[in-house]
């Protein structure tokens, strides 16, 4: 069982993840050529300027207005992206599958980062229920997506701590990771790919076209 999920299933997941994003990107780029404003008004310099103001916390007014939310959100996203990439156990898999090694983070630090993701996910879940505006615009899919996003972290942590005997947790971890990868291109988690583009476009609109700041 473990051999299957960590073998062919993972390859399928990566194929859907990368293929899905690539397909999305190519078709969207083709469609963007038909827009009068997207490509002709795009400016790398102003796009980058805007991105820097938004990927660094407290460099824009909205993140300054809500410092606690900002710290949680940045911590969540940073750990969510960095932990699976640089985890020592994953590095062994990267090497076996692709022959490359990324820098590794020590396991105790990875544990802390995993806990940050899980707690962050819990925060976002509760925030969807508690903040009236967010509740007003959330549907069931938004709640499920939070669970999908933190699923691999919960199972990974539990598995690492060997909370259950045998392969069960490890298999659950791989399956939840597979689900996570496969839904990215087809759900709102695709914001992971679009973020730099929407931000850079607005940065260009404000900076290059309108000579103004968007942070």
């Amino acid at each position: 069982m473990y051999d299957f999920v960590s073998g062919p299933l993972v390859w399928v997941a990566f194929a859907v993840f990368i293929g899905g994003l690539a397909f999305k990107f190519v078709t969207t780029y083709a469609s963007a050529k038909g827009e009068k404003v997207v490509l002709p008004t795009f400016s790398g310099k102003h796009g980058l300027r805007s991105l820097l103001h938004w990927v660094v916390p407290f460099r824009n007014r909205n993140t300054r207005l809500r410092p606690i939310f900002t710290l949680i959100s940045f911590g969540f996203h940073l750990c969510l992206l960095a932990t699976p990439l640089f985890l020592m156990a994953h590095n062994v898999l990267w090497h076996r599958a692709f022959g490359v090694r990324l820098p590794s983070i020590p396991d105790p630090l990875a544990d802390v980062m995993t806990v940050i993701v899980v707690l962050g996910g819990g925060f976002f879940f509760l925030r969807r229920l508690a903040v009236p505006v967010v509740r007003y615009v959330s549907d069931w899919k938004d709640f499920v997506l939070v669970l999908v996003a933190v699923g691999p972290f919960v199972t990974g942590f539990a598995s690492h701590q060997q909370l259950l005997p045998g392969d069960t947790l490890l298999i659950l971890h791989v399956v939840s990771g597979v689900v996570w990868l496969m839904v990215i291109p087809f759900t709102r988690i695709v914001h992971m790919m679009w973020y730099p583009f929407t931000r850079a476009f607005m940065g260009s609109e404000f900076g290059y076209v309108r000579h103004a700041r968007d942070w």
């Binding site: 963007a32 038909g34 709102r188 914001h191």
Partner: peptide, 25 residues
């Protein structure tokens, strides 16, 4: 409409952070 609208509709994660921007709100 083309790419712009599609990407905007897909990307919005319903976080509500835009609310601070609106004088009506």
């Amino acid at each position: 409409t083309a790419a712009r609208l599609k990407v905007y509709l897909e990307t919005c994660v319903h976080c509500g952070l835009c609310s601070e921007g609106c004088h009506y709100f």
